[in-house]
Amino acid sequence: MLKDGEVYCWGRNETGELGDGSKVSKTQPVKIALPGGLTAIDVSANGRSAGSYSARTCAVLKNGTVACWGENVLTPTLVGQLANIKSISVGGGHVCAVDVVGGALYCWGRNQSGQVGIGDTFFVQFPTKIASVSDVVKVSAGSTHTCALQMGGKVFCWGRNFNGQLGLGDTTDRLTPTAVSALSGVTNIQIGDSHTCSLGSTGLHCWGSNQVGSLGINSYIDASTPQFVSLLGAQRIDLGYGNTGATVDGALWMWGNNASGQLGNGNQTNQPKPIVNNLTGVSSLAFSVSTSCALMDTGEILCWGNNTYGQFGNGTTASSFTPTPLVWP
């Protein structure tokens, strides 16, 4: 998405997740036509590869409605029953959106682990209000778990908890939002595949799956409670499928899964603690299954890791272990 609200997509497109009316992968950005010619204020995309591959993209439009595409819907299509939405997060098979009115939370989609948060494990076809949590300022949806940040810095998590990714001190799934009592003063929450991280007044904390060093605590042991990450001054965070990144004064630090070179340090060795990347002037981060991208202060976009489907947006499918510039058509 560009700062003027136009949406561009590129990369894998097997289920129409790019929204250009086809199922053909694109190696360069393609402008997507949104309903009513509207622009977007927020965009999120995710998918799942367990079983049959599927992926979805959703955008919050300027008028507060939501359009989604993918999962064999080839162009942006309005989601009924939603209005006044300010932000959205797409998980592996479910979606959650935050309403501007009272911070109400709506979720729908796959729910086999209770990740929708309505108290059962049945598929939820339509956006459903999660009545047990309000005053939500941010929601983050992972593969099979979800976390919400409440006004005032309180965190709630629910869904799959096999690796302790809910931060509740155990590995029991939760079917409704449950407060993470160990956290307070949180300002940002982000979910990866099976791990979670938060930023706040007490610093950076991560928990959940850690077999590839995703938590940044210099070990490979899972943690079911928030663990302090020794990276002072972290400002922005993003999580992928086992990899984690944070910025400190615009400099990029990364750790965890590096099987596809997604840490951007020139090799494929997993890292259990933060290591500095050579990038400075990083404005924001976006990580997928095996590809990492950064938006720079200059407006340039750099990507690294796996590029099999053209995820770099540079017109090729050549992968790289170091940051590579996107090329606008």
Rank of each mutant, 00 (worst) to 15 (best):
V212I: 12
N188D: 15
L204F: 01
V133G: 07
A104M: 12
V186W: 00
L199E: 00
G167N: 04
F156P: 02
A182G: 01
G117I: 10
S184C: 03
G203T: 03
A104T: 11
K129N: 15
G203Q: 00
G152F: 04
D120K: 06
V124L: 10
V116D: 04
S194T: 14
Q235F: 03
C107M: 10
F162L: 14
G102C: 14
D135W: 00
F126Q: 14
L149Q: 02
L168I: 11
S134T: 14
D170W: 11
R160H: 13
S198C: 05
T171P: 08
G164N: 06
V101P: 06
A179S: 12
G159R: 06
G192E: 03
L149I: 08
G109Y: 08
T225Y: 04
L175M: 13
F126P: 03
L239S: 06
A179V: 15
S134Q: 10
S201T: 07
A131K: 15
G153E: 01
S194C: 12
T144S: 15
Y220M: 13
G159C: 13
L183M: 05
G153C: 04
T172N: 14
Q115Y: 06
T196Q: 05
G142A: 15
D238F: 05
Q165A: 14
V229Y: 00
G164Q: 07
D193F: 15
A179P: 02
V133T: 07
L231M: 00
A234F: 00
V180N: 03
G109N: 09
L175Q: 07
Q190E: 14
G119P: 03
G216A: 04
A223S: 15
C157K: 03
S201D: 04
D135F: 03
I118H: 05
Q150P: 04
S219R: 03
G114Q: 06
K138M: 14
M151T: 13
I191R: 07
A141I: 09
V124P: 03
C197A: 05
K129Y: 10
P226E: 05
V180C: 04
G109C: 12
V137Y: 04
N188K: 09
G164M: 09
Q211H: 11
S214L: 07
L232P: 00
I221Y: 06
L105G: 11
T144P: 01
A234I: 05
I237Q: 00
G142M: 11
G153I: 04
Q190H: 07
K154A: 15
I130R: 11
N161I: 10
L175P: 05
Q190N: 13
G208V: 05
V155E: 01
L105E: 08
I217P: 01
V101S: 15
Q211Y: 10
C157S: 09
V116K: 04
A141P: 04
A179M: 12
D99I: 09
V136W: 02
R160S: 14
I118Y: 05
